[in-house]
Amino acid sequence: MYDFDFAPVFQAWRLLAAGAWATVYISAISMALGLVFGIVLTAMRMAPVAALRSIAIGYIELIRNTPFLVQVFFIYFGMPELGLRLNAMEAAILTMTLNCSAYIAEIVRSGVESIRKGQIEAGRALGMSTPDVYRFIVFRPAIRAVYPSLCSQFILMMLNTSLVASISAQELTYAAQMIDNQTFRSFEVYFVLGAIYLILSQLFSLGLGLIGRTYFSYPTK
């Protein structure tokens, strides 16, 4: 019978805490950048210029139909051939952002499509400026409509950061692998790791819900 021994894992809690912080940090930056880039992609995807639309569709489908891990390897190992040399952390954040933006673009597009034309016309008729129309009538209600899917996408992204350990970006999974190498308590290490990710995903879910309630709590009728 195998004797479980979690003590060596908990002794290394500092490593895990630092790793968890790095995971939150990478996720938060890539989510923010991914949201901005994703909205740009949505605009391109719905632009009246066919070339822009094709580029956006090509990009989105390429990203969504290849594994994140291969994208990480492509950026980290492949890009130096083209002269783009990034350290592990930079490569991790860049890949996460590129990956995130494609999924976000698809989600935001379905939100924008749910806005009826009459709404925009009503805004114009009330004399709102074009930026205001986009901000208050298109963008905000569109994001509000798809906010739940956006949140689950963010959480999936956070869980995906575990893969950047493979290029030795120092986040939570990387920390766990170091502890595993020192203690050989593989099962215990990954069990605790799984529990930490579970807690992180609950915290993200809570936090994003809170942001959503603050930003989107305005009357609609």
């Binding site: 575990s162 990954y190 799984g194 579970l198």
Partner: peptide, 21 residues
């Protein structure tokens, strides 16, 4: 909740290291 709230990589590690136990 458990399978949607943890990374696939960790699930694979746990099965891989857990089955022998």
């Amino acid at each position: 909740q458990i399978f949607q709230g943890t990374p696939l990589l960790i699930q694979l590690f746990l099965v891989y290291f857990g089955l022998p136990l």
